[in-house]
Simulated scan of single mutants.
Amino acid sequence: MTVDIETRPLPAARHARAAVAVLFFTNGALFANLLPRYPQIKEDLAIGNGAYGLAVAAFPAGAITAGLAAGVLVRRMGSARVAVLGTLLTGAGILAAGLAPSVALFATALFLAGAMDALTDVAQNAHGLRVQRLYGRSILNSFHAIWSIGAVTGGLMAAGAMSLGLSLGVHLAVAAVVLVAAAGAALRFCLPGPENEPAEAGPEQHGTEGAHGTSRVGLVLAALVLIATAGTLVEDAGNSWAALYLSDALHASAALAAWGFIALVGAQFIGRIIGDRLVDRFGQRAVARSGGLITAVGMGLALAVPTLPGTVLGFALAGFGVATLVPAAMHEADALPGLKPGSGLTIVSWLMRLGFLLSPPIVGQVADAAGLRTGLLVIPAAGVLVVLLAGVLRARPRRD
C-alpha cells in the first residue's frame, strides 16, 4: 500500500512538468515573434528614435505596474489558470501592437502585453515550483532554459514569416493562435488544487516567529531581490551593450560584435541546462557563489585587458555565471516562512524587472561620463554582490 501511494503521483508530476515546459516555451516565443518586426513597425508609424524608445518602454512599464497583482491572482485562481490566461492576453496585446495604427495605440498595446507577461511569468514559475516540490529535486533551471529555446524559436518564426512575405497581421495572428492553443492544451495536465503548499523552511530559517523573525524574512527577501537583479543586470548588459562595446571600443566588425551577445546568451542557456544537476549536487548557495566569482573574475579580466577574444569569453563567463541566479532567488523567495503563497515569488519577480528598466540608463550615464568600458564594470560588480549575498540561499541538504 505504501508503494502505491509513493508511485501514484509520478505520472501526474511528469505530465505537469511537460505542461509547465510548454508554458515557459510559449511565453518565450510570443514576444520574440514581435521583436524582429520592430523596425517595420517604426517605419510604418513614421516615428523618430525618441518616440520609438518611449513607446517600447511601455512593455516593461506594464510589467512593473501589474506585477504585484500576480500573487493575489495566483492564490484566487490558481497558478496554472493565471499562466494560461496571461498567455492568451499577452498574445492579444502583441497582435494589437503589431496592428496599431498610431504610436499611442502601439504603446498601449505593449503596456497590456507587458502587464500580462508579468502575470504569466510569476504564475508559470509558481507552478514550476509546485512541480519541483513533487520531484524533490531542482528542475526550475530547466524551465528557464526552455524559455530561452522558446525565445529563439519565436525569433526564427518571425524571420521565416518575413522571408515568406507574410504581412505583420497574418504573422502575429498565426503565431498567437498556435502558441495560445499550445498553452491552453497544457492546462489540463497541470497540477490541480490551490496554491497552499507549506513553505520549505530551511535549517537557517526555523524559529522566525515575532518581530525579529519578520525583520529577518524582510532582510532575506531584500537580499534575494538583489541576487535576482544582479542576474538580470548582467543579462541586460549583454542585450544592450555587448555589441556596442565590441564594435566601438574594440573596433570589431558588425558580424563579430554580435558574438558578445551570442556568447552570453549561449553560455547562459548551457548553465541553465546543467544548473539543476549542479544545484542538486552542491546546493543553491555554492552554485550561486561560484557563479558570482566566475562572473566577477571573467568579465573583470576581460575589461582590465581588453581584447576581442578575451571580451567575448568574458561575456560568455558572465552569462554562465548568472545562469541560475533568477531561478534560485525565485525558489528561495517562494519558500520563505510567514508569507502568503506566491507573495515572495511575486515581490522578487516584480523588483527584478526594475533592474531591466533601470540598468540601461545607469550604464549609459556612466558610459557618457567615463566610457563604456567603465560602465560595464557593473557586470563584475554584480558578480561580487552575488558572492557577498549568496549566504541567504540554501546550502546542500544533508543526506543520511
Rank of each mutant, 00 (worst) to 15 (best):
L256T: 15
A63S: 11
V122Y: 03
A182F: 09
A145I: 00
V384P: 00
G300A: 06
L256W: 13
M116S: 12
V386N: 06
A21F: 09
G184K: 07
I41D: 00
L156T: 10
G391C: 05
A199S: 13
R8G: 12
G213M: 10
G300L: 10
V322F: 02
T90G: 15
L336A: 08
N33Y: 08
L95N: 01
A70R: 12
A104Y: 10
T214Y: 12
T374G: 04
V20R: 08
Q40D: 11
S163A: 15
A304C: 05
L179D: 04
G50E: 07
G67T: 03
V392W: 01
R75K: 12
I347P: 01
Q268P: 00
A104M: 13
A382L: 15
G169D: 08
S247P: 04
E235G: 04
A175G: 00
A61N: 11
G98R: 09
L354A: 09
G67L: 09
P203C: 06
G314M: 08
A13D: 11
V174H: 04
P192T: 11
T208Y: 13
R81M: 15
L325Y: 00
K340G: 10
L10A: 12
G238Y: 04
V152A: 10
G375D: 10
V84Y: 14
A395P: 01
V170N: 06
A333Y: 02
V122Q: 02
A243R: 07
T153M: 13
V82A: 06
A335S: 05
L89E: 14
G114K: 09
A63H: 06
A323L: 15
G71Y: 07
R81C: 15
A182D: 06
G375P: 07
A107D: 07
V217K: 01
L164S: 14
T232W: 11
R394H: 14
T7L: 14
G271R: 09
R353W: 14
L112F: 11
A288T: 05
A175V: 04
V56T: 05
A118P: 02
A223E: 01
P380V: 13
V84P: 09
A222N: 03
T229M: 14
N125H: 00
V384C: 02
E197S: 13
R76S: 11
G238Q: 06
A161C: 02
T229R: 03
L89H: 12
A18C: 03
P337M: 15
A329G: 10
V74F: 07
V74A: 13
F320K: 04
V152P: 00
A70H: 13
E235Y: 02
A161L: 01
L226P: 01
F143D: 04
K340W: 11
A100K: 05
W259S: 06
H127T: 05
T108M: 13
L54F: 12
T311L: 14
A158Y: 10
V363D: 03
G238K: 03
L172T: 01
V312W: 03
